[in-house]
């Protein structure tokens, strides 16, 4: 288990290029996050849990689908930690697993209401499935 968590941590580092140890736990990411109340793990917890290798827990959390990729945390982090990039890497890891798809084409017809822009569908496919 320990080995696996180290491996996953390395993989997140390779995907993001972000050294989460730079975090000084100021909470500015969580202070800026527009999805804070929707998330089980808040942005500052994401960063800390990656440092501690608790990747599986993050992958299993619906929090990974609540990040809006608005980059407010990336913009304001005083340590260059880029929490949004970390969240996306975890989401990628979850989606790349078998059965990890969060959004299926079957859902589309029901969501289309005549005004939905292509962009919304394209980004949903890009963001929520492999």
């Amino acid at each position: 288990m320990h080995n696996n968590s180290d491996k996953q941590k390395d993989q997140v580092f390779r995907m993001t290029g972000v050294d989460t140890r730079k975090c000084m736990k100021c909470g500015k990411c969580s202070a800026s996050c527009p999805s804070f109340n929707e998330m089980q793990y808040r942005p500052h917890q994401f960063v800390d849990m990656v440092t501690k290798g608790r990747i599986e827990e993050l992958m299993a959390s619906p929090s990974i689908y609540h990040c809006l990729s608005c980059f407010a945390c990336v913009e304001r982090c005083p340590r260059g930690v880029e929490p949004a990039v970390v969240v996306e890497a975890i989401r990628n890891l979850a989606e790349r697993k078998q059965g990890g798809t969060y959004f299926s084409p079957d859902e589309v017809p029901e969501l289309i209401d005549g005004t939905v822009p292509q962009q919304a569908l394209v980004s949903a496919f890009r963001k929520y499935r492999k």
Binding site: G27, K28, H44
Partner: peptide, 12 residues
């Protein structure tokens, strides 16, 4: 002021 209370884990 939009901030965070990290001990309470709350956005303020």
């Amino acid at each position: 002021v939009q901030g965070v209370d990290m001990l309470a884990n709350e956005q303020i």
